[in-house]
Deep mutational scan, measured.
Amino acid sequence: STVKVRLGHLEVTLHNVSEEDVRELRELWKNGADEEDLRRWLEEWKK
């Protein structure tokens, strides 16, 4: 499914993403990950 995730002022649209992935991303964000960390996660996730 396609999910729009809003993290601060960063809005990311993920395609074919699982609930688990979204949860993981939100956890990262809650734990103080900055945009760099999130971008890195997204790069990994896209592979």
Score class of each variant (00 low, 15 high):
Leu25Cys: 01
Glu27Ser: 04
His15Tyr: 09
Asp34Arg: 10
Glu36Asn: 13
Glu24Ala: 14
Thr13Gln: 05
Glu11Cys: 12
Gly8Arg: 06
Glu27Trp: 03
Leu7Trp: 07
Asp37Glu: 15
Glu27Cys: 08
Leu42Phe: 13
Asn16Tyr: 06
Thr2Lys: 08
Lys46Asn: 12
His15Ala: 06
Ser1Trp: 03
Lys47Pro: 08
Gly8Phe: 01
Arg39Val: 12
Thr2Gln: 07
Glu27Pro: 01
Glu20Arg: 12
Val5Gly: 01
Lys46Leu: 15
Asp34Gln: 12
Thr13Gly: 01
Arg26Cys: 10
Arg26Pro: 00
His9Gln: 14
Glu43Asp: 14
Thr13Asn: 04
Val12Gln: 02
Asn16Arg: 06
Trp29Tyr: 15
Leu14Asp: 00
Trp29Asp: 12
Glu24Leu: 11
Glu24Ser: 14
Thr13Met: 07
Asn31Trp: 03
Arg40Leu: 11
Glu43Phe: 03
Arg23Lys: 13
Arg6Tyr: 06
Val22Cys: 08
Val5Ser: 00
Trp45Asp: 02
Val12Gly: 01
Ala33Glu: 05
Lys47Tyr: 04
Lys47Asp: 07
Val12Arg: 02
Val3Ser: 02
Glu44Met: 07
Glu43Met: 05
Glu35Asn: 06
Leu38Pro: 00
Leu42Gln: 01
Glu36Cys: 09
Glu11Thr: 11
Glu20Phe: 06
Val22Ala: 11
Trp41His: 01
Glu24Phe: 13
Asp21Leu: 11
Leu7Gln: 02
Asp37Asn: 07
Gly32Leu: 07
Asn16Gly: 12
Leu38Gln: 01
Val3Arg: 04
Asn31Met: 06
Leu28Tyr: 06
Val3Met: 05
Asp21Lys: 14
Leu10Asn: 09
Arg40His: 09
Leu7Val: 14
Arg26Tyr: 13
Asn31Thr: 10
Leu25Ser: 00
His9Ala: 13
Arg40Trp: 04
Glu20Gly: 07
Leu25Val: 02
Thr2Val: 10
Leu28Cys: 04
Leu14Glu: 00
Glu19Lys: 08
Glu43Thr: 05
Glu27Arg: 06
Lys47Val: 08
Glu35Thr: 08
Glu36Pro: 05
Ser18Arg: 08
Asp21Arg: 09
Val5Trp: 00
Asp21Ala: 15
Glu44Gln: 12
Arg23His: 12
Glu36Val: 11
Leu25Asp: 00
Leu42Val: 13
Leu38Tyr: 04
Leu7Thr: 03
Lys30Glu: 15
Asn16Val: 02
Leu10His: 14
Leu28Glu: 02
Glu35Gly: 05
Glu19Thr: 09
Leu28Gly: 01
Arg40Gly: 06
Val17Ala: 08
Thr13Ala: 04
Trp41Pro: 00
Gly32Tyr: 05
Val17His: 01
Glu36Leu: 10
Lys30Val: 13
Arg6His: 10
Leu28His: 04
Lys4Ser: 10
Glu44His: 12
Gly8Asp: 04
Val5Phe: 05
Arg39Pro: 01
Ser1Gly: 11
Asn16Ser: 06
Asn31Gly: 10
Lys46Gln: 13
Lys30Arg: 13
Asn31Ile: 05
Glu35Pro: 08
Gly8Val: 03
Asp21His: 13
Asn16Cys: 05
Val22Phe: 14
Gly32Val: 03
Ala33Ser: 06
Val3Gly: 01
Val12Ala: 04
Lys4Cys: 10
Glu44Pro: 00
Trp45Gly: 03
Arg26Met: 15
Glu11Arg: 06
Lys47Gly: 11
Asp34Trp: 05
Arg26Leu: 13
Thr13Ser: 06
Asn31Leu: 05
Asn16Asp: 08
Trp29Ser: 14
Glu44Leu: 08
Trp45Ser: 03
Glu11Lys: 05
Glu36His: 14
Glu19Phe: 09
Leu25Glu: 00
Asp37Thr: 15
Gly32Phe: 04
Trp29Phe: 15
Val12Asn: 01
His9Pro: 11
Trp29Thr: 15
Lys46Ala: 14
Thr13Tyr: 07
Glu36Trp: 04
Leu42Cys: 03
Gly8Ile: 03
Val12Pro: 00
Lys4Asn: 08
His15Gly: 03
Arg39Lys: 13
